[in-house]
Simulated assay, not measured.
Amino acid sequence: MPEPTLVRGDITTQVVDAIVNAADTRMRGGGGVDGAIHAAGGPAVLADCIARFPDGLATGDAGWTTAGRLPARWVIHTVGPNYRAGQRDRSLLTSCYRRCLEVAGELGARSIAFPLISAGIFGWPTDDAVAAAVETLRATPSEVSDVRLVAFGADVHDLIAAALEH
Protein backbone atom coordinates (compact mmCIF):
# COMPACT_ATOMS: atom_id res chain seq x y z
CA MET A 1 0.00 0.00 0.00
CA PRO A 2 1.50 3.32 -0.99
CA GLU A 3 1.32 6.24 1.39
CA PRO A 4 -1.27 8.74 0.15
CA THR A 5 0.18 12.03 -1.03
CA LEU A 6 -1.38 15.46 -0.77
CA VAL A 7 -1.95 17.88 -3.62
CA ARG A 8 -3.46 21.34 -3.36
CA GLY A 9 -5.48 22.17 -6.43
CA ASP A 10 -8.36 21.26 -8.67
CA ILE A 11 -9.13 17.56 -9.00
CA THR A 12 -10.29 18.06 -12.59
CA THR A 13 -6.73 18.95 -13.64
CA GLN A 14 -5.01 15.92 -12.12
CA VAL A 15 -3.11 13.84 -14.66
CA VAL A 16 -3.84 10.38 -13.26
CA ASP A 17 -5.45 7.19 -14.50
CA ALA A 18 -8.61 7.83 -12.46
CA ILE A 19 -10.16 10.69 -10.56
CA VAL A 20 -12.80 10.09 -7.93
CA ASN A 21 -16.12 11.89 -8.11
CA ALA A 22 -18.09 12.42 -4.92
CA ALA A 23 -21.54 11.86 -6.41
CA ASP A 24 -25.07 11.52 -5.12
CA THR A 25 -27.06 8.30 -5.54
CA ARG A 26 -28.64 9.44 -8.83
CA MET A 27 -25.24 10.05 -10.50
CA ARG A 28 -26.56 12.77 -12.81
CA GLY A 29 -24.21 15.61 -11.94
CA GLY A 30 -24.78 18.23 -9.29
CA GLY A 31 -22.86 20.78 -7.28
CA GLY A 32 -19.41 20.83 -5.74
CA VAL A 33 -16.89 18.25 -6.94
CA ASP A 34 -19.60 16.38 -8.84
CA GLY A 35 -20.61 19.46 -10.83
CA ALA A 36 -16.99 20.41 -11.52
CA ILE A 37 -16.14 16.93 -12.82
CA HIS A 38 -19.21 16.76 -15.05
CA ALA A 39 -18.55 20.26 -16.38
CA ALA A 40 -14.88 19.60 -17.12
CA GLY A 41 -15.48 16.10 -18.51
CA GLY A 42 -18.34 17.18 -20.74
CA PRO A 43 -21.50 15.35 -21.78
CA ALA A 44 -19.74 11.99 -22.26
CA VAL A 45 -19.44 11.57 -18.47
CA LEU A 46 -23.17 12.04 -17.90
CA ALA A 47 -24.07 9.86 -20.88
CA ASP A 48 -21.89 7.05 -19.50
CA CYS A 49 -23.40 7.47 -16.00
CA ILE A 50 -26.89 7.09 -17.47
CA ALA A 51 -25.89 4.06 -19.56
CA ARG A 52 -23.93 2.22 -16.84
CA PHE A 53 -25.96 3.22 -13.81
CA PRO A 54 -29.58 3.75 -14.86
CA ASP A 55 -30.66 3.28 -11.23
CA GLY A 56 -27.66 5.13 -9.75
CA LEU A 57 -25.45 3.70 -7.02
CA ALA A 58 -25.95 2.89 -3.37
CA THR A 59 -24.28 4.95 -0.67
CA GLY A 60 -20.79 3.57 -0.01
CA ASP A 61 -20.46 1.98 -3.45
CA ALA A 62 -18.40 3.01 -6.49
CA GLY A 63 -18.38 2.51 -10.24
CA TRP A 64 -16.50 3.90 -13.23
CA THR A 65 -17.23 5.84 -16.38
CA THR A 66 -15.25 7.50 -19.11
CA ALA A 67 -13.52 10.72 -18.13
CA GLY A 68 -14.61 12.53 -21.27
CA ARG A 69 -12.45 15.64 -21.76
CA LEU A 70 -10.67 15.29 -18.40
CA PRO A 71 -6.93 14.47 -18.43
CA ALA A 72 -7.70 11.25 -16.51
CA ARG A 73 -8.67 8.04 -18.27
CA TRP A 74 -11.60 7.19 -15.97
CA VAL A 75 -13.87 8.78 -13.42
CA ILE A 76 -14.63 6.54 -10.46
CA HIS A 77 -17.91 7.76 -9.00
CA THR A 78 -18.65 7.06 -5.36
CA VAL A 79 -21.65 7.94 -3.24
CA GLY A 80 -20.67 9.28 0.15
CA PRO A 81 -23.07 9.41 3.07
CA ASN A 82 -25.09 12.61 3.46
CA TYR A 83 -24.41 13.62 7.06
CA ARG A 84 -26.90 16.50 6.85
CA ALA A 85 -29.62 14.03 5.85
CA GLY A 86 -28.86 11.78 8.85
CA GLN A 87 -26.53 9.27 7.15
CA ARG A 88 -23.91 9.15 9.89
CA ASP A 89 -22.60 5.61 9.65
CA ARG A 90 -18.85 6.11 9.24
CA SER A 91 -18.49 2.67 7.63
CA LEU A 92 -20.36 4.04 4.60
CA LEU A 93 -17.74 6.77 4.26
CA THR A 94 -14.78 4.43 4.60
CA SER A 95 -16.45 2.04 2.14
CA CYS A 96 -16.26 4.77 -0.51
CA TYR A 97 -12.46 4.87 -0.33
CA ARG A 98 -12.12 1.07 -0.27
CA ARG A 99 -14.53 0.56 -3.15
CA CYS A 100 -12.78 3.21 -5.26
CA LEU A 101 -9.44 1.44 -4.78
CA GLU A 102 -11.09 -1.88 -5.69
CA VAL A 103 -12.59 -0.42 -8.87
CA ALA A 104 -9.24 1.21 -9.74
CA GLY A 105 -7.56 -2.18 -9.34
CA GLU A 106 -10.14 -3.85 -11.57
CA LEU A 107 -9.45 -1.22 -14.23
CA GLY A 108 -5.68 -1.62 -13.92
CA ALA A 109 -5.30 2.00 -12.83
CA ARG A 110 -1.96 2.79 -11.23
CA SER A 111 -2.77 6.36 -10.15
CA ILE A 112 -5.87 7.82 -8.55
CA ALA A 113 -6.86 11.23 -7.17
CA PHE A 114 -9.48 11.56 -4.42
CA PRO A 115 -11.40 14.58 -3.19
CA LEU A 116 -12.41 14.62 0.47
CA ILE A 117 -15.63 12.61 0.20
CA SER A 118 -18.81 13.83 1.94
CA ALA A 119 -17.11 16.84 3.56
CA GLY A 120 -18.65 19.42 1.24
CA ILE A 121 -22.37 19.80 0.65
CA PHE A 122 -23.07 16.48 2.46
CA GLY A 123 -21.73 18.07 5.65
CA TRP A 124 -19.55 15.31 7.13
CA PRO A 125 -17.40 16.94 9.87
CA THR A 126 -14.15 17.84 8.16
CA ASP A 127 -11.81 16.52 10.87
CA ASP A 128 -13.45 13.11 10.79
CA ALA A 129 -13.69 13.09 6.99
CA VAL A 130 -9.92 13.65 6.83
CA ALA A 131 -9.26 10.94 9.43
CA ALA A 132 -11.53 8.46 7.62
CA ALA A 133 -9.79 9.14 4.29
CA VAL A 134 -6.24 8.84 5.59
CA GLU A 135 -6.91 5.80 7.80
CA THR A 136 -8.78 3.92 5.06
CA LEU A 137 -6.34 4.69 2.27
CA ARG A 138 -3.44 3.59 4.46
CA ALA A 139 -5.16 0.36 5.52
CA THR A 140 -6.58 -0.80 2.19
CA PRO A 141 -4.40 -3.15 0.13
CA SER A 142 -4.23 -2.01 -3.49
CA GLU A 143 -2.25 -2.36 -6.68
CA VAL A 144 -2.57 1.40 -7.19
CA SER A 145 0.88 2.92 -6.71
CA ASP A 146 0.01 6.65 -6.72
CA VAL A 147 -2.83 7.63 -4.37
CA ARG A 148 -3.49 11.35 -4.08
CA LEU A 149 -5.75 13.37 -1.84
CA VAL A 150 -6.56 16.62 -3.62
CA ALA A 151 -7.52 19.59 -1.46
CA PHE A 152 -9.05 22.59 -3.15
CA GLY A 153 -8.84 24.94 -0.15
CA ALA A 154 -6.03 25.82 2.23
CA ASP A 155 -7.92 24.78 5.38
CA VAL A 156 -8.59 21.24 4.14
CA HIS A 157 -5.05 21.01 2.76
CA ASP A 158 -3.61 21.84 6.18
CA LEU A 159 -5.86 19.30 7.94
CA ILE A 160 -4.88 16.53 5.53
CA ALA A 161 -1.20 17.45 5.82
CA ALA A 162 -1.39 17.17 9.60
CA ALA A 163 -3.15 13.79 9.39
CA LEU A 164 -0.56 12.44 6.96
CA GLU A 165 2.24 13.37 9.37
CA HIS A 166 0.87 10.95 11.98
Rank of each mutant, 00 (worst) to 15 (best):
M1T: 02
P2R: 03
E3R: 04
T5M: 15
L6R: 06
G9E: 00
D10E: 12
T13V: 04
D17N: 14
A18T: 03
A18K: 05
V20Q: 09
A23V: 03
A23F: 09
D24V: 02
D24N: 09
D24K: 00
D24Y: 13
T25M: 11
G29W: 11
G31Q: 13
G32W: 14
V33L: 11
G35W: 09
G42H: 12
P43S: 15
A44P: 06
A44C: 01
V45K: 01
L46K: 10
I50V: 14
P54W: 12
P54A: 09
D55S: 00
D55R: 04
G56A: 11
G60K: 07
A62G: 03
G63M: 04
T66N: 11
A67R: 13
R73Y: 06
W74K: 01
I76C: 03
H77Y: 09
N82K: 08
G86L: 00
D89E: 01
S91F: 07
L92T: 03
L92V: 00
T94A: 12
S95H: 05
C96Q: 04
Y97I: 08
R99D: 01
E102D: 11
A104V: 07
A104K: 08
G105L: 08
R110G: 14
R110S: 14
S118K: 09
G123Q: 10
P125D: 15
P125Y: 13
P125C: 14
T126N: 11
T126C: 10
D127E: 15
D127G: 08
V130D: 02
A132N: 04
V134L: 04
E135C: 02
A139P: 07
A139E: 12
T140Q: 14
P141I: 03
P141T: 01
V144K: 09
V144E: 11
S145Y: 07
S145Q: 10
L149A: 01
A151K: 10
A151V: 05
G153F: 13
A154V: 12
A161R: 10
A161I: 07
A162W: 05
L164V: 02
E165Q: 14
